[in-house]
Amino acid sequence: MLREKLAGEIQGIIERYPEKRSAVLPLLEKAQELQGHLTKELLEEIGEVLDMSAPEVYSVASFYSMFHLEPVGKNRLYVCRTLSCALAGSGDLLSACEKKLGIGEGETTEDGQFSLFSFECLGSCGTAPVIMANREYHEEMDLAKLDALLERLSKETANDVVEQSAVNERSGEGDSPDSREP
């Protein structure tokens, strides 16, 4: 799939680097664009292209917050929760998102249109609170802007065919470390 769809691009990406393996993040990014999340097949294919084992590719992908290893909605909302945004009301913003979409943090709407995530510092603290919608920053957010954003995104993706694949509740972020009560 990756090789079919990106036939013309893969070699160019690999050639940017002195060592092939450095192309893993760019290829994971491209692969995720194809299907919204990184399937086992895509990870295997990247491994074949870069001479890495599938588990190695998985190990890399699972390290980074922006990669989704489980199905996600057509639109992903990442609400920054770190201090400057929290001081500017990101907690309320996240609650508003949950209420409007009828889902909790880490979940996807039933129609597959939206997934909601709380996210760590987006590096835009001067224009807090901030939401990253797909790959776009929305700064100095308030409830009115949130309504407008959700409406726009809904319209943009309403006509897209939603895949019938089971949309899981949580992406593969749940590798909670050993966290016994101290």
């Binding site: 940017r16 680097y17 060592e19 092939k20 393996r21 450095s22 192309a23 893993v24 993040l25 760019p26 994971l28 990014e29 870069l50 890495m52 190990s59 890399v60 390290f63 980074y64 917050s65 922006m66 990669f67 996210f119 760590e120 510092c121």
Partner: peptide, 28 residues
């Protein structure tokens, strides 16, 4: 000069974590 995007990990700001990431690994 190549522009290389990370993928969301604070620790990649630490220089050896960044280099591990740029080499195609976890940003450790």
């Amino acid at each position: 000069l190549v522009v290389h995007r990370g993928a969301g990990a604070y620790i990649c700001g630490e220089e050896t974590g960044l280099l591990s990431s740029l080499q195609g690994g976890r940003g450790e």
